[in-house]
Amino acid sequence: MTEANFHISFSKVEKALSFFNLLKMKGVKRLINDGVSDDFKHASLGNKYYYAYKIGLENNDFDFLLKDESFFQFQFEKIDDLLEIRYAFFQNPFEYLSYEEFLLHEIDLDTNKESLETVGNLFEQEYSQFLNERELTSSYSTLRYDSDFKNYKPILHSVSHIHIGHLSNIRIPMDKVLSPLRFVLFTIKHVYYNNWKDKLDKNRCDLMKMLSDCKSGETLLHEDFWTEDEKIELHLK
């Protein structure tokens, strides 16, 4: 993948997240230029995923923040003519409700004879307290994609691979360098199933066009970095 193709694909991520009704905001940083904070780098090497997530959120170490306060990161470093790529998705590990959902779950509107519209911001203090006291959920995911040429070892550490889980040794090999948009769509399908299903049911043509478009700019690995032995192993194509 060229640097230009990376930027073209990255520019389509915001529209894709909005299409699935997931986007809350773009980050105040552009991680390709600004990088992540030193605090986040240190925290991400630790054993406690939720701590790394909180540091990333507090330090704005993201390119895109989702409505449930999960976030995406996109970075690369150019070494000679190769891109050493890192994409990451950090799912919010804490119980999350939007303000509207909090009102529906926690407040008896019938008893109060109020509607969501008339309640307005009256319960913001209670909502803020809920966010501060929320507990870890029973299930959350973190996904990362790397193209890592410098640490390539056939059958052990593939150049192109997807990580599943925090600090795990799960590396699913791939035969190509993945685009930012492809990583986002992969994440949405497997983490935000209901959003994906809704668009598949109601906007199938637009979804299929996006899936076709996400392949643009991706490049197959050269045989120097994708051997015949590796093709025997289970991998993503």
Rank of each mutant, 00 (worst) to 15 (best):
N194L: 14
E84I: 05
Q91M: 04
I79K: 13
L221N: 01
I172A: 05
S158A: 15
L65I: 04
D224A: 05
I79L: 07
S216H: 10
L211Y: 13
Y51D: 12
A43R: 00
M174A: 11
S44T: 06
E218Q: 13
I155T: 15
D63F: 02
D34W: 04
M208R: 12
F186N: 12
D213C: 05
K231V: 11
L236M: 12
T187P: 05
K209Y: 07
L22V: 01
E101C: 07
D39F: 10
L143N: 09
F10Y: 15
D148N: 15
E95G: 09
T137Q: 15
T111R: 13
S115E: 10
I32D: 05
T137Y: 06
M25V: 10
E218C: 05
K24A: 12
K15S: 14
Q91D: 01
T118A: 11
N47R: 10
A43D: 03
E106H: 14
A52V: 10
F89A: 00
N121E: 15
P154E: 14
T187L: 05
E233V: 05
N132M: 09
Y127L: 03
Y50Q: 15
F64E: 03
E218Y: 07
F183Y: 07
Y96N: 02
N92I: 04
L23R: 00
S212G: 13
I85K: 00
K215L: 15
